[in-house]
């Protein structure tokens, strides 16, 4: 009986190993093929940011780890609710980070005293007005909703 148990544990171990291998294969296959979602862009307060930014810096900013623009202005990050379609599309397609991972990264920093949450807005209008009026602000919006008092950030 003890042996049988040992064997079944071994079989499970093998299954786990094959899961690992499957994961490795999926890394390349599991790219973001969903084209139904709205096309999103990162937007910022016009005079405090550059107009081109690297994806890794954008990730660090929305991960609440980069708190200063090159010209020393404090960064103010604005996001929508975790389950908003805009948040989902921006996270997955532009940052290429899953929303649940962003939430986890924020929680881990806030509850160990190492960081703060981004500011949450309730609507597209609020997002636009906050970005247009707050020095250092950064957020996101559907590309067809961009107004000319915010700056689109091109990803390098």
């Amino acid at each position: 009986m003890k042996n049988l148990f040992g064997i079944s544990v071994f079989a499970l171990f093998l299954r786990t190993c094959s899961l690992y291998m499957l994961a490795v294969i999926l890394i390349t296959a599991n790219s973001y093929a969903d084209t139904q979602e709205p096309a999103m862009v990162a937007i910022a307060f016009p005079s405090t940011s550059d107009s081109v930014i690297s994806r890794s810096s954008l990730r660090a900013i929305f991960g609440m780890r980069l708190n200063k623009w090159p010209a020393d202005t404090p960064v103010r990050v604005f996001v929508m609710k975790d389950d908003a379609p805009e948040h989902d599309a921006f996270s997955k397609n532009i940052l290429q980070v899953f929303p649940h991972q962003l939430r986890m990264a924020w929680d881990r920093q806030v509850f160990s005293g190492q960081g703060q949450y981004p500011e949450q807005v309730a609507s597209i209008q609020e997002m636009l007005s906050k970005i247009a009026s707050t020095p250092g602000a950064i957020g996101y919006i559907k590309i067809n909703e961009v107004t000319n008092n915010v700056r689109i950030l091109q990803i390098r």
Binding site: D72, S112, G113, G115
Partner: peptide
């Protein structure tokens, strides 16, 4: 319970 504040963009003061 915890509280945090950012007196400047380079500094966080926090306690839990």
């Amino acid at each position: 319970v915890n509280a945090s504040m950012r007196p400047t963009s380079d500094v966080i003061v926090s306690a839990g």
